[in-house]
Design a protein around this nucleic acid. Structure first.
Length: 204
DNA sequence: TCGGAGATGGTC
DNA sequence: ACCATCTCCGAA
């Protein structure tokens, strides 16, 4: 139920990635609160990972926040159209983060429908409901997450992640990460984690 | 239900 | 010149 503390994010990135599964992302915007349970993530660790934006200690205006200590938000624009949200992990200077790839709506699904499709939930087909949040770009659109949240602290009240009151059991699936064919040996790393059987996992 | 192709603009 | 994606459209 409580907000995850900063020390949660300052741990090893793979542990944080797995630990985020089943937790709930909360975004408060203009008096409206939208929530989604995290069901799929990927880890990116700059020091050893050619897929990471921070590989080779590449410190730029875009990647700066990834070098902060754990517990901040890294949002970037991909393919000129879509936003992706990461949670910064580890110690200051590390350059690591966890990408959110799938959410299960738990509150404000009506608002998600408006954000994604511009029309009310009742008018959606079944397939459109699954497609609300089963991908990194989709979930940002549904939650209303944009680059305005770049660098936001997850200790604040605008955006944060909370624990569930009644924790449910689930099995964690593991696989290679998606769409990083350029990353040479790093594309073999099994750094994608998901809740097995959950319909809001983007694929597999 | 599936796969291929195009959209689109910030970043390096 | 890429790119941690998505949608549309045609085929089956």
């Amino acid at each position: 139920m409580g907000k995850l503390p900063k020390v949660f994010y300052e741990r090893d990135t793979l542990d944080v990635a797995k630990g985020l599964l089943g937790k709930v992302l909360v975004h408060r915007n203009q008096g409206i609160e939208i929530k989604g349970k995290i069901v799929e993530v990927e880890a990116y660790i700059g020091a050893i990972d050619k897929a990471a934006h921070t590989y080779n200690n590449l410190r730029t205006e875009r990647t700066e926040v990834m070098f902060w200590s754990g517990g901040y938000v890294y949002v970037y624009l991909i393919y000129g159209m879509y936003h992706c949200m990461n949670v910064v992990t580890g110690k200051e200077g590390e350059g690591s983060a966890v990408l959110l790839r799938g959410l299960e709506p738990t509150q404000g699904i009506e608002q998600m429908s408006i954000h994604r499709y511009g029309k009310p939930l009742e008018t959606l087909k079944r397939s459109q409901i699954i497609n609300l949040t089963n991908g990194p770009g989709k979930l940002c659109k549904a939650m209303g997450i944009t680059k305005e949240l770049y660098g936001a602290s997850l200790m604040g009240d605008k955006i944060f992640i909370e624990d569930l009151k009644d924790k449910e059991e689930f099995d964690i699936g593991v696989s290679k990460r998606i769409n990083i064919d350029y990353a040479e040996e790093a594309k073999e790393f099994e750094w994608r984690f998901f809740i097995k059987g959950n319909p809001y996992v983007s694929k597999g």
